[in-house]
């Protein structure tokens, strides 16, 4: 296989190049994991200190909508895995369809998320940029802290989604029928994007659990 693959001049062979790329991505995701660990650590400390207030604030969020949204994101994880599988089987045309499906699901997720944000803005639950915070519960100060974290966490996650969608768009454009060496590279790019996409799902699972589900 190695005679049909483009190898950068500093690598010995295709195997070394492929494994180096994968390892780099795993390490990058370890870094991302620690980034979010810092955020969740801070949230966890406050959840411990102000349990009752945070649980009450959590009940002000739209759980049904967020649950549907979580299901949509998990489904996009499936379509992404299917896209990867198709590329590995050499079915580029099929893979591009799965990419379109993944992008569509990701976009729907972001639209629903945006609708939720707008809803909270309208209800006066968006304590950013000096906007009024109009909260009817019994711990307004700590609830404000909760909503600060809500926007920081969901915002940071949405930012990661946008990066992922951008990468998918590039993959879609690149994914025209190609000669051998480029196809190998395409498989690697697909694999790396797929890992990133699944990681963004993992992050969302914890965002969802921390913010929406811990309500008692």
């Amino acid at each position: 296989m190695s005679d049909t693959v483009t190898i950068a001049s500093h690598f010995e062979d295709a195997e070394q190049q492929r494994e180096a790329g994968l390892m780099g991505m795993w390490l990058f995701l370890a870094t991302e994991l620690m980034l979010f660990a810092g955020l969740f650590g801070a949230f966890g400390i406050y959840r411990g200190l102000h349990g009752e207030a945070f649980a009450e604030a959590a009940r002000h969020l739209d759980l049904p909508l967020a649950s549907i949204n979580t299901a949509i994101l998990l489904t996009s994880g499936l379509t992404m895995a299917l896209a990867e599988r198709s590329v590995q089987a050499g079915l580029i045309v099929v893979a591009r369809r799965w990419i379109v499906a993944t992008v569509a699901l990701g976009a729907v997720f972001l639209v629903i998320k945006g609708y939720e944000w707008h809803h909270e803005f309208a209800e006066g639950l968006m304590p950013l940029l000096g906007l009024p915070f109009d909260y009817d519960g019994s711990h307004p100060a700590q609830a404000e802290l909760f909503f600060d974290f809500y926007f920081a966490m969901t915002g940071l996650h949405a930012l990661h989604m946008l990066v992922g969608l951008g990468a998918l768009a590039v993959l879609w454009v690149l994914g025209r029928p190609q000669p051998g060496p480029r196809a190998d590279r395409y498989i690697r790019q697909m694999r790396i994007t797929g890992m990133y996409w699944a990681f963004v799902d993992v992050v969302w699972v914890f965002v969802f659990t921390s913010l929406y589900l811990l309500r008692s």
């Binding site: 801070a42 400390i45 406050y46």
Partner: peptide
């Protein structure tokens, strides 16, 4: 930048964090 209070003691935040 956003005028929020992650470490603000008034909201129950903790500067030591």
């Amino acid at each position: 930048a956003l005028g929020i209070g992650i470490f603000d003691p008034e909201l129950g935040g903790d500067p030591l964090l």
